[in-house]
């Protein structure tokens, strides 16, 4: 058995799809392929790309529904940790099996299908996280900087969710201009169109982001007032909060400064009511009925 090394010149689905098509038509089995992402290019053991055998006399080809393709593409946005299987190898094994007629390969009950499902879920979950927990900071108009974005945010996603975020926020923000920076890339939107900028080398860091942002001292006051007041101390349930809003996101959310205080106050405070304790000490007011209630 010979081994073929394939370079993912661009770590994207389109590039993988081209390779996969050629591999199938040459009937190269998954076990014969080494996928090399650009990141491992400097790897000691990385070999240069090998020529594929010519198309086989009985080439394999595969037709996928839009939905199946979307599923595979979504799974390709998953960034595996170091002990997990390379995303391109997994995808190729799945299409190989499908091409051989193993229809179950993409179903969640299957060994490979289950991994695809788990990755699709994780990616969608992270898309949801960036939609939910990202915080835009409005920027004061600065003289001489007409092109500076009106809103700026920093976010650290776990998977490749930039495009999904871009499409979501352009729908929400109308003609406002905005910038979302993440370590792997930034979305720049001028209120009509967006594009993604990648760091020239390495990753964007907070040091790249912070100089772009200007924050008024009391910018978050109204939100903090609201957050504390909408909380019901009589229903304290820290576990559900942490499960639904993982703490890795807190760092960039203004309400982080309130959480511990609210919890300990609710747990140890004398007050076991739902009311915000800031109100308990204020003067209240009962209401007298008008002589005849008008209905």
């Amino acid at each position: 058995m010979s081994m073929y090394t394939l370079h993912m010149t661009q770590a994207d689905f389109a590039c993988w799809r081209d390779h996969a098509r050629r591999l199938l038509s040459a009937r190269v089995s998954p076990g014969e392929v080494l996928w090399q992402s650009e990141a491992s290019a400097g790897d000691l053991f990385a070999s240069s790309e090998t020529d594929l055998p010519p198309p086989s006399e009985t080439p394999l080809a595969l037709k996928l529904s839009k939905q199946e393709l979307r599923r595979l593409e979504c799974a390709s946005h998953y960034w595996p940790s170091h002990h997990q299987e390379c995303r391109w190898a997994l995808l190729y094994r799945v299409v190989w099996r499908l091409a051989l007629g193993e229809g179950e390969a993409l179903l969640a009950g299957d060994r490979d299908g289950a991994v695809i499902e788990q990755r699709v879920k994780a990616v969608n979950h992270e898309v949801h996280h960036i939609h939910a927990f990202l915080r835009f900071h409005p920027q004061p108009a600065r003289a001489g900087e007409q092109h500076a974005p009106e809103f700026i945010a920093w976010f650290e996603p776990r998977h490749d969710v930039l495009e999904a975020a871009a499409r979501h926020f352009i729908d929400r923000m109308g003609q406002h201009s905005w910038l979302i920076m993440t370590p792997e890339g930034a979305i720049v939107c001028d209120g009509r169109q967006w594009h993604i900028e990648r760091p020239e080398s390495g990753a964007f860091t907070l040091q790249n982001y912070q100089p772009l942002t200007e924050m008024a001292e009391d910018a978050e006051d109204l939100w903090l007032a609201y957050y504390a007041s909408t909380f019901n101390p009589a229903r304290l349930n820290e576990k559900t909060m942490v499960r639904s809003m993982p703490s890795r996101f807190w760092r960039h959310m203004p309400e982080r400064v309130l959480i511990t205080g609210l919890i300990s106050h609710a747990r140890h405070g004398a007050q076991q009511l739902g009311q915000d304790s800031r109100l308990a000490t204020r003067r209240g007011r009962t209401i007298a009925l008008p002589a005849k209630p008008r209905h």
């Binding site: 957050y227 349930n237 809003m245």
Partner: peptide, 13 residues
């Protein structure tokens, strides 16, 4: 729906 935050009562904002 989107839950933009959670308060310590575990409820979605």
């Amino acid at each position: 729906g989107i839950c933009h935050s959670f308060t310590p009562d575990g409820r979605c904002v």
